[in-house]
Nucleic acid binder design. Sequence first.
DNA 1: TTTTTTGTGACGTACGCTTGACATAAAAAA
DNA 2: TTTTTTATGTCAAGCGTACGTCACAAAAAA
Lengths: 332, 332
Amino acid sequence: MKHTLKDVAEKAGVSLTTVSRVINKRGYFSKATEARIFAAMKELNYYPNSVARSLSGKKTKLIGVILTNTHNPFNAELLEKIETELFNREYKTIIANSLDNPQKERSYISLLQSNQVDGLITASHNTIINDYHQLTLPVVSFDRYFGSHIPTVSSDNFLGGQTAAKVLLEGGARRLLLFSGEISDTNPTSDRMNGFMDICLKRKIVPEIQGVPSDATSNFRKMLIHQAITQHHPDGIMCTDDATALLVMRELKQLNLRIPSDVQVVGYDGSDFILQTFPELSTIVQPLDDLAKTMVNLLLNKIDQPDVLQERQYIFPITFHRGTTTKFIDTE
Amino acid sequence: MKHTLKDVAEKAGVSLTTVSRVINKRGYFSKATEARIFAAMKELNYYPNSVARSLSGKKTKLIGVILTNTHNPFNAELLEKIETELFNREYKTIIANSLDNPQKERSYISLLQSNQVDGLITASHNTIINDYHQLTLPVVSFDRYFGSHIPTVSSDNFLGGQTAAKVLLEGGARRLLLFSGEISDTNPTSDRMNGFMDICLKRKIVPEIQGVPSDATSNFRKMLIHQAITQHHPDGIMCTDDATALLVMRELKQLNLRIPSDVQVVGYDGSDFILQTFPELSTIVQPLDDLAKTMVNLLLNKIDQPDVLQERQYIFPITFHRGTTTKFIDTE
DNA sequence: TTTTTTGTGACGTACGCTTGACATAAAAAA
DNA sequence: TTTTTTATGTCAAGCGTACGTCACAAAAAA
């Protein structure tokens, strides 16, 4: 049923080596035999066994992509772009959702190593840095610091946080509330918070901060949001991701608070999906294309030329999408 | 740098065979040597090379999942659930987005075969049925008919279409408009349209139908939607997916048409994301969990027991999520 | 004590393909 | 004509693991 090189060789009436030469475009062979071999391959519906190929010293052309989840539109789009880019470079993508479960992520790291993936892209947010340090294979991370030998790609989170704060303040907000997905130091995402705080402090404003764990149930998150809003009565809210911003907007509506007149809202991420279906949401837009392409480029470069040193950080500028959830007061 | 069975054997002071026995839990070995071997594995940071394993044995424990894209929330969640389920069964997921490009999908099929995936789950919508027929490996499809040896898993699209039509009619709509992602016969998704038409014809209503190609640019799709609405002046709209429904709602707002008083809208899919962030959208909800689990179960069963015959179709009931984009007139 | 079960080793083959070394012959270039 | 290039073949080693066959002890059961 399944055919091998040998079958093709026999069918085409040539030697095994010749077939291998043709397939790998190595050494000399004539157009004529090449045609005969291709014909035989087609006739037998032969396709090379890349498992065997990988075993005899070659690459697997497999890349592991570790995300927290796929259901967040930003992650979904990031994955799609990474996959597309990898496909164009003839690599295949193994997807690994950590679901914020360190155990699962750890298992996946082992699995992926076992499978001899050529490299790893990780955009997960778990506290298992050490596991990554153990790795000898090329890794590129998104929005997370791992250490010197693992380059980090991210958008300018600090500037993003600053921008969000400025927008809210310029719109007249004074009682600020920040919903942050997670609060940890090793994480560039926390720079969103830092940037936000930076502007606040300069304006002598002390914002409230509420963590909203992304792995919690949606009801629990809603409850946290509800409580924070009713307790602090903010007139300006930043969310460190758009999904949370949508929940916040929903909650505000239920509380009969009007956006932006009573409360302004700024999100973060700016995935295409959100921009198209929620253009009214003001949000900090990450350059998804650049991020995905850069990660793939960095990773494949590292794979092809392991010795070339790379920068530690690649920070891309963000843009602000002005929707109608913030006020725009032209001060000039 | 990279260690093999042999290194572990030497480190543990046992034979290669014994290590293999322990790793595969085959034949006899004592607790003591097992411990020594595990210790050696840990010390060397050894992990079995599953490429070699696959070559020697048979299975790769890899499953290819072919989708049209990842950015649609429904697809994203389906993928996440499939991946989670596969992981629980110790399988890995290679993701392949066709992006509605037959060429790309074809390439991927070859690629995945080359990589000796143990099976395929396909939820893409391209016209390359023949390529799938060539395949000898187990395949399960979502929402698409391929033929007798490939089981199809889907929600009850016909009933879904019927339900949508009924809801709109019960809400008082008479000028119906249907936005369909794609119009083709071989596709169970077209049953959504058929179910819709079925009810319409019974009520002697002739709805307008407008295709909205999912691979078109978002602006083009908006334009189509805009034209169809201004041309037909519908008071009830069904969309065969929620993403389109959101675009439609947006367009209606811009046209200053009120929902549901001027126009009612029903969507289809009911992904968690939409249900949480757009609960106001009335939509037909597919049982994502059941669908994902069934597909994985069917596929893995087929892999484990190739000879057991399977049903051709697995159709799951849908539910209706009543939001505020439809009117509810209690007729009793 | 004898038999059976358990624990370990040695060795070899197989998986499908890559790659290198070496040989040979024809075609093309010098 | 001689040399070089092109086109193929044969042979063999190797990638890391699985697994079967033999063989030999030691421990446990009869």
